[in-house]
Design a protein around this nucleic acid. Structure first.
Lengths: 342, 342
DNA sequence: CTGTTAGCGCCTTCAA
DNA sequence: TTGAAGGCGCTAACAG
């Protein structure tokens, strides 16, 4: 039903080729002809068919983004950066929520390949099991060999031989920094509420925590590490579990700010003051970190910038598959303090 | 560079048409042939070119979503619903952040039209000026006449004659309900921090507030209405302005939860306890509402459901342009209480 | 059941 | 400076 270039040509009394030339502007056309064509375009409200164009160029102007859940503020921040950078170059970003499910992730990859996405950006932690790794690497090679750039964002490369660019977050470093902060304040018994099992982000943040303990000679207490995911509920439940077990701790380090928010909530519900009785620290510096009271001490991760960087890598010179590691920064606010004396 | 159907056909030793039939499965093909074709598809890692297909069908499997900012939890919630519903029918949702700028909004509409989006969903408040209305109505007609369904989501139809389906939120109703809640608690001097000027949502929420005052005979105090936008900063600044002006109020009603969070913050910074000294209420029931302490009394808006509904309207029977109004519900939590005696 | 043909809307030679 | 012709990858007739 939409208007075609031929109709525009007819109306303007020129050939289709001429219309095309006016539209693309990369070819000399007489001023008067150009005027007539542009008028016809306006009158008919014509817009080029992106598909027909994509068919010729075998490029679509589409950037695929696959992430767990775009309504999660972590992903939302990165997606925002991607979308902005993509829009600046007239590209459309297609956001796909995989719900963290590899099946869905692959299904979206397939769909995006069908749409001949110019690039696909995979955002967020990846599963760590071997099966996934093999499959993912194979997929990655498939995309690349079919002309779609692949960028991993917030996850490490699946293996040495896996192609594609990578924007990594210094999770271990940030986690170590915030752990040291707690230790410097005088905390020795620090509880840790983890992210979801078997994801790269969970592992590296936990590793940073442990590294900082080791490095400063603070003895790790296995019972103080409780499992969670990246949700507020996990933080709440984690603290409740610690409390129910009569665990002794003066600080809680959470896998992210959402978890920290839940932890603060549970602590308050149990009558513990934050930070007077227990310090709480988060990760990611999500917008919510300053809604929580007391405002969360956390690790800042430049989400939007990470998204923009991913787009740059996707469309920059692709001579080598670059790996960029984004630094993180400790942000001290109100939720951490020295432990109560005694 | 990607593999084409012809190559698959060559490898399988059949004609392109046969491959097409196997792929689409809507035509009888001998089992043995099918096997051979499928094997070739696998070996070559072939995926149909969605553009070539779209060219034939003049349908693209793309749902365009235009909103202010996908990282804003309000939009994120709706977008999530849209994305889920779209994915269930193998459609790709394309999210475009217009930053609330009509220019950008129109630019995206254009882009999406170029991609022959099957439907476009416009999410969030619309500007109220006449110029925009005219332009928007014209655009809407353009899309429709070119075969793209249009759904407005969280904004009223631009005019009687404007085509397209609409999912409206009962903003005035929810606002009135929460205002009545405050009045019933005993509040008479209620401050109101508005959303951004000249947007439909701002207007209708404010209207609901005023209607409830009128209906219950509480005298409105113009000085207690301060302007804001939908951000935390606005809430903070709004309260600071009220305080600086020595305004007397026992409750603050905010245009949304983000604003309410900022208001709580500013009140606490000024030494006022919430809800003991001042009650605070928000709107939208965003995830953050329960991170704020005290947990926010607010109006629940079923964001994800609204998104799903928009998709249903987009692809449902289009005989008539339906208008659905989504009800809202008061959620009483901890941030509101009776005013201090005296 | 399978192959051949034509054409979706556009752009890019090649000629004029 | 402009027009005519062919083809991008796929599918829907139409034959066989």
């Amino acid at each position: 039903m939409p208007v075609t270039l031929v109709e525009v040509a007819a109306r303007a009394g020129v050939s289709p080729a001429t219309v095309s030339r006016v539209l693309n502007g990369n070819y000399p056309v007489a001023e008067s002809t150009r005027q007539r064509v542009q008028e016809a375009v306006r009158e008919l409200d014509y817009v080029v068919n992106a598909h027909a164009r994509a068919l010729l160029h075998s490029t679509s102007g589409i950037v695929g983004v696959v992430l767990n859940d775009a309504s999660d503020p972590f992903f939302a921040g990165i997606a925002r950066g991607i979308q902005g950078a993509a829009a600046e170059t007239s590209r459309l970003s297609v956001i796909c929520n995989s719900e963290g499910d590899p099946e869905q992730e692959f299904a979206f990859l397939e769909l995006l390949r069908g749409h001949r996405a110019d690039a696909v950006i995979l955002v967020g932690a990846a599963p760590e099991d071997a099966e996934y790794l093999v499959e993912a690497t194979a997929r990655a090679k498939g995309m690349l060999s079919h002309g779609t750039r692949l960028v991993l964002c917030g996850r490490p490369a699946p293996g040495e031989d896996a192609p594609g660019a990578v924007v990594e977050i210094d999770n271990a470093g940030g986690s170590a920094a915030i752990t040291r902060h707690l230790i410097e304040l005088g905390h020795r018994r620090i509880a840790y509420i983890t992210g979801p099992d078997g994801r790269t982000t969970t592992t590296s943040r936990l590793a940073g925590f442990r590294a900082a303990l080791a490095e400063t000679g603070v003895e790790p207490v296995p019972d103080l590490v409780v499992h969670g995911d990246f949700s507020r509920q996990a933080g709440h439940a984690g603290v409740e579990r610690l409390l129910a077990a009569d665990a002794e701790f003066t600080a809680v380090l959470a896998a992210n700010d959402l978890v920290a928010a839940g932890a603060v909530h549970a602590l308050r519900a149990a009558g513990r003051r934050v930070p007077d009785d227990v310090s709480v620290a988060g990760y990611d510096d999500l917008p919510t970190a300053v809604d929580v009271w007391p405002n969360l001490t956390t690790v800042h991760v430049p989400l939007e910038e990470i998204g923009r960087m991913a787009v740059e890598l996707a469309f920059g010179p692709s001579d080598q598959d670059s790996v960029v590691t984004v630094p993180t920064a400790l942000v001290v606010r109100e939720s951490t303090a020295a432990p109560a004396a005694g």
